[in-house]
Amino acid sequence: MDAIYARQRHFYDLTRKYYLLGRDRLIARLDVPSGGTVLEVGCGTGRNLIAVAKRYPAAKLYGLDISEEMLTTARASVTRAGLSDRIVLQQADATDFDAAALFGAATFDRVLFSYTLSMIPDWQAALRQGASVTGGALHLIDFGQFERLPGWFGRGMKAWLTKFDVEPRAGLFDFLKSLDPTFACRPLFRGYAWSGELRR
């Protein structure tokens, strides 16, 4: 991941805002309780955590990512935003991390996955791990199967995403329901994105 993001991290946010759709909608739905905690799994450049911190000024935020290159950008962005006292960042594997050792907390009021599962080879393990540290609600958004968009668009998007080692997870909804039958799953933007929400 460091090899992939060594250069991309410098322009990642500028380009991704045009096709990582629904992230701000997800953040608006978090409904973080006053003084609550939020963990983002696969936090990348820190863009989402900064947005969450601004929307929920009493929240304490945590982020982990496997790429130290991305975390270098995230730490710089958090510092520029004046949020170093509220956002803690650590390098870790999304599929196997010790939240208590990393952050001093075993569970979090909100756990967030934003366009990360399509890049994690063992995405099922990452979801199990995220669910295990969810004390309130788990929220996710990622690429869908483009099922209600023109066929040429879906084929083109999947081919293009493959160039960046991104694979929309066709079995996502079925896995979420197997993980917990109360998972609320829905397509967005005619299947461009899929979202899921689990409330404890």
Rank of each mutant, 00 (worst) to 15 (best):
57 P>S: 07
130 G>W: 07
195 S>H: 15
113 F>V: 15
49 L>Q: 04
134 T>G: 00
178 S>H: 11
136 G>W: 14
151 G>N: 12
118 S>F: 02
198 L>G: 04
152 W>P: 12
134 T>H: 01
96 D>W: 11
15 T>P: 10
54 K>P: 05
53 A>Y: 08
177 K>M: 10
180 D>A: 07
104 G>C: 04
123 W>P: 07
119 M>L: 08
91 Q>L: 07
160 W>Q: 09
171 G>H: 13
21 L>F: 11
195 S>P: 09
86 R>C: 10
62 Y>E: 11
137 A>I: 00
92 A>T: 00
107 T>E: 02
81 A>M: 07
2 D>P: 02
120 I>Y: 02
49 L>A: 05
11 F>G: 13
156 G>V: 08
35 G>W: 08
191 G>Y: 11
143 F>G: 13
23 R>V: 14
35 G>H: 13
51 A>K: 13
185 C>V: 12
121 P>V: 10
5 Y>V: 08
168 P>H: 11
102 L>A: 04
83 L>F: 02
196 G>T: 03
21 L>N: 02
10 H>I: 10
128 R>K: 10
66 I>R: 11
187 P>L: 04
191 G>N: 07
69 E>G: 05
79 T>M: 15
99 A>F: 15
112 L>C: 04
82 G>K: 09
145 Q>H: 06
195 S>K: 06
73 T>F: 14
122 D>F: 13
148 R>W: 00
18 Y>E: 05
170 A>G: 11
47 R>K: 01
44 G>R: 02
48 N>D: 14
69 E>W: 10
118 S>Y: 03
94 A>R: 05
184 A>R: 15
98 D>I: 01
154 G>M: 00
149 L>R: 11
29 R>P: 04
153 F>Y: 15
38 V>G: 01
86 R>P: 05
93 D>M: 10
110 R>L: 12
7 R>V: 10
148 R>L: 11
94 A>Q: 05
109 D>K: 01
76 A>T: 14
192 Y>D: 03
116 T>V: 12
94 A>E: 05
105 A>Y: 15
172 L>A: 09
4 I>A: 08
195 S>W: 15
59 A>E: 13
